[in-house]
Write a protein that binds this DNA or RNA. Structure first.
Length: 431
RNA sequence: GUGAGUGUAGCUCAACCCGGUUAGAGCACCUGGCUGUGGCCCAGGAUGUUGGGGGUUCAACUCCCCUCACUCACCCCA
């Protein structure tokens, strides 16, 4: 029956999903362009080393989720699991000297995990990176930008979780305190957490186990250990976001799985998504550029999940006519004029089709209907004799006669008054 | 990577618990009613290696094992 199926954890985008995807990408491009981000495209695979250096040797992404392979010359390569390292690498490779630019990307990423709703092995991310920006106002503007994106798509239940995990100066001390606390807890922690305590202590806060959460209630909080500069930075970010009216939740347990983050970390969370409820996330990474061999450069960025975004978006109504015209011919004699008309319409930017295969008129209408066309133009001997066409509206069924000379203009007028393809009302302008 | 559940026509599902003629239904599809008009109506039609493989049995969609896929949760994060 089905002889070939797609590899596990991958997804096909057929119309109309492919078109919805393009629409989401278009909206993202438009929005980030308003903030001065410019598009960057980097390879889908990179040297394995750069992911090891950036995400951290202990991170789950590196230890169990990467698609690693050797090429024919025994190079160690990896299908990119995230975007930031590749972007930073590309910028550093392109020129020497100070780094200061705003870049965005859209594309596929790969992580090997057990697929479930909202988790695929090949998925797509929309990301921005602001390199060379240290101000807390840059963090806030970028977080606001992501929030704007979701609200423009009609995603109403998105809440932004935010936290600060300190910097190189305050984190080691905190880490010590936390480690000490975790040791005291001993068996109260689940096996996962005991192991996490050794590898990457901050991540115990992510655990969903109720016993662990109870044990952690008394744990030292990152916020109590921030150095004055980090505390002030965090306060400014939160203040500015509140001023902008972003729905914020300060979440002391929010610790991201990538080692390169410092200070601000955040996540966009949607309630409608199930277990994989994060629409996207990001944070500040002031040490990564240097770690990858560049000059010390502060930076912030985020990555948003395209598939999850599409899951959270309001689903479109089912019957949606395409801006498409069918030119219907009645007998062989009209085929020539039919093709001529079709090319005239296309030359004027009007999408149209002819059903060449079915000779019957009724059949042609049926094909037009199932292709979700909006109009049919009928080319018959009567029409040709009178120098006109019959024009039928497939939504309403009404049919009128249009002089041959004004058919292009008429169709243009009729197709021009469509709504945007996402089916949402055009949301407010960016402030 | 761990656990649980589910795989029957293109789609949504029935028959499985308790094995027994030709595996059904709705929607979709095709043909005709209707050789200048889609949707509605009427009449007719086509479609399955019951996910795949193995086992038990006189007999397997049904019971058992393996495998693959999907779903949900853990884990992880987008």
């Amino acid at each position: 029956m089905i002889r070939w199926s797609r590899p596990r954890g991958t997804q096909d985008f057929l119309p109309p999903d492919s078109e919805r995807k393009r629409e989401v990408e278009r909206l993202f491009r438009e929005l980030v362009t308003l903030y001065g981000y410019r598009e960057v495209e980097t390879p889908i695979f990179e040297h394995t080393e750069i992911f090891l250096r950036s995400a951290g040797m202990e991170s789950d992404i590196v230890t169990k989720e990467m698609y690693n392979f050797l090429d024919r010359s025994e190079r160690q390569l990896t299908l990119r699991p995230e975007g930031t390292p590749g972007v930073v690498r590309a910028v550093l490779e392109s020129k020497a000297g100070p780094v200061r630019c705003r870049l965005f990307y859209i594309g596929p990423f790969f992580r090997y995990g057990r697929p479930q709703k909202g988790r695929l092995r090949q998925f797509h991310q929309l990301g921005v990176e602001a390199l060379g920006e240290a101000s807390p106002l840059a963090d806030a503007e970028l977080i606001f930008l992501g929030e704007q994106f979701f609200s423009r798509l009609g995603i109403a239940d998105c809440v932004t979780h935010i936290n600060s995990i300190g910097c190189q100066r305050c984190r080691p001390g905190y880490r010590q305190d936390l480690l000490k606390f975790l040791k005291e807890q001993g068996p109260a922690l689940c096996s996962d957490c005991s192991e996490r305590a050794l590898r990457s202590p901050l991540r115990v806060f992510d655990c969903k186990n109720p016993a662990c959460q109870a044990a952690l209630a008394e744990a030292p909080k990152p916020s109590q250990h921030l150095c004055p500069e980090c505390a002030e930075h965090f306060r400014s970010v939160v203040d500015d976001l509140k001023r902008r009216g972003v729905r914020l939740e300060v979440d002391e347990r929010l610790v991201r799985g990538l080692d390169y983050y410092n200070r601000t970390t955040f996540e966009y969370v949607s309630a409608t998504l199930g277990a994989q409820n994060s629409l996207g996330g990001g944070g500040r990474y002031d040490y990564l550029v240097e770690e990858l061999g560049g000059p010390a450069t502060p930076a912030v960025g985020f990555a948003l999940g395209l598939e999850r975004t599409m899951l959270a978006m309001p689903q479109p109504g089912q019957e949606r006519r395409q801006p498409l015209v069918f030119v219907v011919w009645l007998s062989q004699a009209e085929l020539g004029p039919t093709q001529e008309l079709a090319e005239r319409l296309r030359a004027a930017g009007i999408p149209c089709r002819i059903d060449f295969d079915s000779g019957k008129v009724a059949r042609q209408f049926k094909v037009a209907d199932s292709a979700q066309a909006s109009y049919c133009v009928i080319v018959g001997s009567e029409e040709l004799a009178r120098g006109c066409y019959s024009l039928k509206n497939l939504m309403t069924g009404e049919q009128v006669t249009v002089p041959a000379g004004s058919i292009v203009e008429e169709l243009r007028r009729l197709l021009g008054s469509g709504q945007n393809k996402l089916g949402n009302r055009q949301a407010g302008t960016v402030t």
